[in-house]
């Protein structure tokens, strides 16, 4: 349903440029959930925003191919894009409250979203549909919430309202950018469950963007691990967790498992210090500076190689 080939994004700043995303390719099928995992600055959000063409004007996108649902995104003009954005693809963010208009009631904002897709909708129908939507996202008393203003909502409620608005148009693809990072533990698991239920109900495809690997274990079918703007490993969720190959993926998995099991002390590579490497590596493997077992070969950039026919890894040490 979505296919991205060779996506590059450069940020052209006044005095220098940044390669935020380098040669990223992925695909997803209908109803699938893929996860882009990586630390902050790894380019994972940029990838998603590039697909939606929502990047600031100083970002330069180039790609071999971006196809969504039979439409060529690369050639799409602004009119077609806004159609796609409103109807087929929606996004939810980390801090929904700041994306809601603070001086308009929750109800009005949901009505607006409904109106955008169906301009002929009557006030009464809008009310009914809005309440229906809020029930879908498991808000207990939708009538009251409709009259509230964004600042009166808790973080969890705001995220639910945002999800309600996102699904109001029956989208095909939902991009969830760190949807639970700002939320408490018990609310986080509620939202994850909600997303999973919606996915089944609407046959929704989800791109989950997160730095927290443990979230992906619940929701994602396949995982793309990103580091420094590149995909370094891709596999099914099970494959990533049970058989991580790339040193960065290994580090991620061991860290999160050690934290979960309360055995941080037993981490092999404790890395109690951050040594500063002065030589800037311009070429070669992205992970070279942090990799423990690099050798001369790593000064050339490794390609994304198929491994065992199951996964792809960007590392010379296969």
């Amino acid at each position: 349903m979505l296919k991205v080939e060779g996506l590059n994004v450069e940020y052209l700043l006044t005095s220098y440029k940044v390669d935020a995303v380098k040669n990223v390719s992925f695909y997803m099928k209908k109803g699938e959930c893929i996860a882009l995992v990586g630390e902050s600055g790894s380019g994972k959000s940029t990838v998603a925003m590039a697909i939606m063409k929502l990047l600031p004007p100083y970002a330069k996108i180039s790609a071999k191919e971006i196809m969504f649902d039979g439409k060529d995104i690369l050639k799409a003009d602004e009119k077609l894009m806004s159609e796609i954005r409103g109807k087929d693809v929606t996004v939810i963010f980390q801090d929904p409250i700041s994306y809601l208009n603070p001086i308009i009631s929750v109800g009005e904002q949901i009505f607006e979203a409904l109106m955008a897709h169906n301009s002929k909708i009557s006030d009464k129908d809008a009310q009914v549909q809005a309440i229906e939507l809020l029930k879908k996202v498991k808000i207990a008393d939708p009538e009251r919430v409709l009259k509230m203003y964004p600042f009166q909502l808790s973080g969890g409620m705001a995220q639910r309202v945002f999800i309600a608005m996102a699904i109001s148009a029956n989208p095909k693809l939902l991009i969830a950018d760190e949807p639970t990072t700002a939320l408490d533990l018990t609310i986080q698991s509620q939202i994850l469950k909600l997303l999973n239920n919606l996915r089944k109900e609407y046959n929704l495809s989800i791109i989950l963007i997160t730095h927290d690997l443990s979230l992906t274990s619940y929701l994602a079918d396949r995982i793309y691990v990103m580091y420094n703007g590149q995909i370094v490993e891709e596999d099914t969720a099970e494959g990533i967790f049970s058989n991580p190959i790339h040193p960065y993926t290994k580090m991620l998995i061991t860290s999160s498992q050690a934290i979960y099991q309360g055995e941080v002390k037993r981490l092999k590579d404790k890395m109690n210090s951050e040594k500063e490497v002065n030589s800037k590596v311009e070429q070669g493997c992205n992970f070279l500076r942090k990799c423990k077992d690099s050798n001369a070969e790593c000064e050339k950039e490794p390609p994304l190689i198929e491994y065992n026919g199951l996964k792809k890894v960007r590392c010379w040490k296969l």
Binding site: S154, T186, Q190, S217, Y218, E238, F241, I253
Partner: peptide, 25 residues
């Protein structure tokens, strides 16, 4: 609170059900 921590392992039984505590503080 302890139940709602998702374990970093897609195969564990807890991951599949993900027990949740309903409601908000």
């Amino acid at each position: 609170l302890l139940e709602s921590i998702p374990p970093p392992d897609p195969k564990s039984a807890k991951t599949k059900t993900l027990p949740t505590l309903e409601g908000e503080p």
